[in-house]
Amino acid sequence: MSTPLPYPRFPGFDVMSQAGHWDEVTRQLVEDRLEPDGGASFFSRLERRAAGALVDRLTGQDGGQLVPVLQMLEDRLASGSTDGWHHQRLPQDAEVWRRTVLHLDADAQAIHGADFADCTADQQDGLLEGIRTQGDEPWHGLWAPGIWNLWMRYVCSAFYSHPRAWEEIGFPGPAFPRGYKNTGLDRREPFEVAQAHPEQEGDPHP
């Protein structure tokens, strides 16, 4: 599996090994996240190819998948769960997702002569960075800063809800009913893992 990190920063950190210490409701929720049933689908087959490529690029997941962001995203969009607001300059969230993935394909075809999903990673990144830095100008009639914000909100709330992502950043996840006993600077719980070479060359933090 490819990863944007040169090495695991918290080697051996296994969040789920502590699941026995979590309350039942939370444990069930997180375990279900590890094995999504894959029932709901929101995108058409055509839309899904572009959407999958999009969310993989946004979360740095090319090659292999740490977190099934596309499936989590589709489940959420199919259930109509929003953040409780949308910007007046944009349609409602689900419509923005549908339209933007098709616009990505249109741009990719126009510029690179291929569907977005078939472009190289660099080509995909170039298209996406163009939208991110578009400024207040509309992109295919849609307000670009709002699109970027919406994309990142949805994909990050999926990605960083996943134990595999927590392990990558050293976060142990649920904490009820056990809580913590070692708070304070440079203090760890027995189940928290020390970093590998945090301040040395090759530190993932540039």
């Binding site: 740095g60 996406l128 990142m152 990050c156 992502a165 990558e168 950043i169 050293g170 976060f171």
Partner: peptide, 28 residues
């Protein structure tokens, strides 16, 4: 917490692999 922290970093314009690298620094 992590999802909210990711908003702090995406607000700086980070995304993709760069976002993942920066997020891995969360504990600091």
């Amino acid at each position: 917490l992590p999802i909210t922290w990711s908003e702090h970093l995406t607000a700086q314009g980070y995304w993709g692999a760069e976002l993942r690298r920066r997020m891995s620094d969360y504990v600091h």
